Computed example of a mutant assay.
Amino acid sequence: MSTALPLGLFRGLFDDAAVFPPGDLPLPQAVPAHLAHRASRYAEFVGPFLCGAGRLGELAQLAAPGLRVALVLPGGSDQLAPALGHGLELAGVEIAALPDVRAAVAALDAQLPPGVPGSVELPRGDGLSAALDVLAGTPYRAKYRTGGLTADAFPTVAELAAFVTGCAERGLPYKCTAGLHNAVRHTDGQTGFEHHGFLNVLLAAADPSSAAELLAERSGKVLAAAALDLTDAQITAARASFTAFGTCSIAEPLADLAELGLLPHLENH
């Protein structure tokens, strides 16, 4: 087992989704909190601030230097042009595959500002493979929903493994959204929902051939040992595939990793 902490596995991994459920932090609180994250000792692990289409006008009034925003557009291609008109510093655009994947890709091709990365949220279900085929070869990441406010919003291990391996087979980078509140797969004690762990997903990205087994693992000790054994090349490959995920809390996943011995304890989180 390596004695060096795999810090590169987590840099820029945690996109700030504080204003989304179940966090639902008001924007006037979420913006300064995000800027504090970006000025902290753990800033290297924090991604952009995520904001939905319906709140961009309010966000533009609160914007401050250093606020980099990723637009989340659940309404698909029709929301893109209006969302780009708010003068925010863009770190990315995430658009649902509506009315379909080809329309979302065409909208990004035509309207996405130069240098701004784009992601297309793909539907779960039987059409996933075809959707991945459309997205493969474009400049855009796939986005996949890994949870929500109801039990059926969480994909099964088999579903998520099919997404991870499907992206790997096509050389397609991806991000995840919702439900990845903790590092390790677990059953939520209050809701009974089966939550995927973001560390499970990282390790599956590093070894897609074992994705189902790694996604099903519930032992933090086992997963931490596997993470410590990753080579620099494996870490680079994992993060080239699994680029980020949205989390309502920045502190919680960092604390999880510290408890697993994968990050130092960060005093000001």
Rank of each mutant, 00 (worst) to 15 (best):
Q234Y: 08
A227V: 03
H34M: 11
S77N: 04
D15F: 06
P74E: 15
T156L: 08
I250T: 08
A104S: 11
F245N: 00
A81F: 06
K175F: 11
T187S: 13
L160G: 00
A251M: 04
A204C: 07
L9A: 10
V101D: 00
L108C: 03
T191Q: 08
A178C: 13
T187G: 11
L172H: 10
A70T: 14
C248N: 06
L223H: 00
L135R: 01
V31Y: 01
G246H: 01
A206W: 04
S241P: 05
E89G: 09
A107T: 03
Q29T: 09
L25G: 05
P65M: 12
A97H: 06
L80K: 01
G246C: 02
A30H: 02
L88P: 02
L128H: 02
E89W: 04
E267R: 14
A104F: 07
R38P: 04
A136D: 06
M1P: 14
E194K: 10
R170S: 11
N182V: 02
A162W: 05
D15I: 11
S119G: 15
F45A: 08
A107C: 08
V157R: 02
A39N: 12
V222Q: 12
R124G: 13
L112K: 02
A81N: 11
P155V: 07
A204K: 00
V69S: 02
A17W: 01
D256Y: 03
S2P: 05
R239A: 11
R239I: 10
H86D: 10
D126E: 15
L223T: 01
H86R: 13
L149N: 12
R41Y: 10
G261E: 06
E217K: 08
D78L: 15
A63K: 06
P114S: 10
H265I: 12
G197K: 01
L122V: 07
F163P: 00
A158S: 14
L71G: 00
A233P: 08
K221T: 15
Q234N: 13
D229T: 13
P99I: 12
T191P: 01
L254Y: 00
A96E: 05
R124K: 14
E58D: 13
Q234K: 14
V19F: 09
V93Y: 00
A53S: 14
T247F: 03
K143Y: 08
L112M: 07
R170W: 05
L98P: 08
G192Y: 12
H37M: 12
L5W: 02
C167W: 03
L25V: 15
N268G: 09
A83F: 06
L71I: 10
L112A: 07
S209C: 14
G75I: 06
L263V: 03
H195V: 05
T3F: 14
V93L: 03
G23I: 09
V120N: 00
V31T: 08
A96G: 09
G76M: 05
F193T: 09
P139N: 10
E259A: 13
A142L: 03
N268Y: 13
Q61L: 14
G115L: 11
P6Y: 03
C51P: 03
A244I: 05
A136H: 09
